[in-house]
Design a protein around this nucleic acid. Sequence first.
RNA 1: GCGAAAGUGGCGGAAUUGGUAGACGCGCUAGACUUAGGAUCUAGUAUCUGAGAGGAUGUGGGGGUUCGAGUCCCCCCUUUCGCACCA
Length: 822
Amino acid sequence: MKYPFNEVEQKWQKYWDEEKVNKTDLSGIEKKLYCLVMFIYPSGSKLHCGHWYNYGPTDSWARFKKLQGYNVFEPMGYDAFGLPAENYAIKTGIHPQDSTIKNIEDIRAQLKRMGCMYDWDAELMTCVPEYYKWNQWLFLQLYKRGLAYKKYAPVNWDPVDQTVLANEQVLPDGTAERSGAKVIKKMLAQWNFKITEYAEELLSGLDNIDWPEKTKLMQKNWIGKSTGAEVKFTIEGSGESFKVFTTRPDTLFGVTYVVLAPESELVGKITKPENKKIVDEYIQSVQSLSEIERTSTAKEKTGVPTGALAINPVNDERIPVWVADYVLASYGTGCVMAVPGHDERDFEFANKFSLPIRKVILEGGKKLEDELTEAFTEIGTMVNSGDFTGLQSDDGIEKITDWLEEKGCGERKVNFRLRDWLISRQRYWGTPIPIIYCENCGEVPVPEDQLPVELPYEVDFRPGGGSPLARNENFLNASCPKCGANAKRDADTMDTFVDSSWYYLRFLNREFSDAIFDSQLGNNWTPVDMYVGGAEHATMHLLYARFIHKFLRDIGLINSDEPFKKLIHQGTITNKGAKMSKSKGNVVNPDIFIDNYGSDVFRMYLMFMGPYELGGDWSDKGIVGVDRFVQRVYSLFKTHETLSVEQAPDQIFEIEKLKDPEKNVYRNVNQTLQKFETEIEHFKFNTALASLMELLNELQKDLSNSSDEIKKYSLQRFAKMLAPLAPHLAEECWQILGNKITIFENPDWYKVDPKALIQEEAIVVVQVNGKVRAKLNIQIDLGEEKVKGLVWNDEKVKTHTAGKQVVKEIYVKNKIYNIVVK
RNA sequence: GCGAAAGUGGCGGAAUUGGUAGACGCGCUAGACUUAGGAUCUAGUAUCUGAGAGGAUGUGGGGGUUCGAGUCCCCCCUUUCGCACCA
């Protein structure tokens, strides 16, 4: 009889639902385990294979932990704000709220069909006032402490989505992470969260979390800490001065010119009249360059002199001031001291524009007179450096910095590459920023008791007219909370990464109305024990959430330092070599496979494809193999339907008293149990399933020659191991055996009988000169002399060693016997 | 350019501390049962060679360490990912 997956899956989903089997009692914290997948973005494209690949195996892991006795909390929710819904509204006229709610309903139905053990009572969505109210509250707390501030600055503008973006939301090639559009620079006043305030801790905290090294390294590079000094240079004949950041104060005597970023305000102030034309032209030409062109290392360096001279504080030397686009306004001070002798970029620039190159660090083994053919950037002996000549340059860094500090023309400085998080978005479908602008009082935060600032439903989506909220008089007009005068609301909404940076706390009680989340639950249940999601969030969501978590800790709401203790990235499922996306038209719809094979088969097939962290290219070729496995399992249990299951769960058999096939079965069951545990624990689902397949092969061979007791013993354990991977099928099999209480209602796990793992025999491989010549069955732990006797008795060994001189014999106990002959 | 990971049959992929390479599955071949099978079951399946027993070769390529290397070391090639003037 074919396995009726449809009826079985529906039956168990209904049962789990009605009996609230998947509801977590959050008061039980002795063995709490918070297992979280990144919540879903409910776009029109519904659940695709990538979601399944993320959620299915993770749920299997969570189920396994539940059977092991953990009190597992596994919630699911919807990251429901965001641009796609709004763009869809512009195209079709369907309101983002309506399309989002509709999508959530569809996705929820799909999720339920997966049969994951989500606690549906905890389900949440971010687009409801009860949720986004707390985004606004969070904003106000940051604002109060000076960590949310408005800044007029060049920002990344996405011309397609018509909004600004944070730095990390712009890809290295200068395109927008979401829309793919070429990002341009624009001057705008925008709200920022001061994530840089936490730079140091975000960096050091990486040492205490169990995350992929690669992800930690990406965050580390993104934060980009470097230590050095800030040195003050003055401009000759004017009151102007500027600071440069350098990691190499030891090379200060080698500075032969300085360079300002084209965006630097100083440029206009100090440029000599005779240079004004070329400088203006240069700045103009740079502006027309795209981000990609400007930051390409392959591009030849360009620049122009301002005609101004700066004074080097260490030797009072007059050096020219240049403008060049290889200096970035956004890093350090936007000014660089150029040391062409010891910096590759400066070397290239100096050569091109015939600027002097001075050697101040001598490479070990070289002479002072030797010509520099390339920049020497390593540590060496300081030369041509006044009083510091003769020092090792690493020592010189300290000495010169001390000197600068004494003289008041410089100081020690730690510099970060990390920029503040720009959270304003000129869009409708997001959390309104709780700020009001009053003509009398200026920028006024909305008082907490007036939250939420609700997002109006009635808005005009016509494109081209700026943000819909900016055109909505009803929303825009407000009275000043301070003086009551007519005032205007901020028309921007927040980046949706704000929503996702604390949602894991809200899951614990989505109805909590006294605060952003229930602190007691938060303290008991964070950090999240296992967090699973895509690697593409390495420097965005995963950094923002860490920042917000630390902030919430600092205002006394939570007692843990990090949100996610352990992190795993599922691999990417591609199709025909490309990431699945609607625009490429290569999205594989999982529903067809669910219709044909059922949820369990599809889930197991995804797990069986290969290592979880690797992903891979989609192919449905092997799915029949998993289906066959399921069919074979089902018929195996069906043929044992009449077995009564009255058997103690911890029953142990005395292995010596068993018949041979029973021994084999008993051993195999226990070996598999042990292997299965370690494999699934480490997210090695492919080999975990393979071990079950092997066991099934063994059971089909030998189970019929075993006693009912052994049959029960084996089938019970088989069903339980199957349960994390194929929960519906396993419950069915469990019931077929006659069990009254379902697997997940009464979660427990079988212990391995260690005696069953003891081998009686071993196969010793006999090699002659490294080549396998024989295999011997020996009694386990047989003494070396006896093994030697058996080896030399072997005909093959005799032939291959005949007439040769034995040089050496190596015996590795129970494994290998290697004879070296000449 | 820099950094990281990876490269194993026709395919997806297995392989504790170096110790039988190719588990498990797909596909393929042969056979059985069948009116039939794109169902199921059994056997086989790295390559070359050989009727066979066997022999030789074999984990991207080339060197090395070792009794023994997919695994460790050096050089090179390819792919993927990340970073890309960070002063």
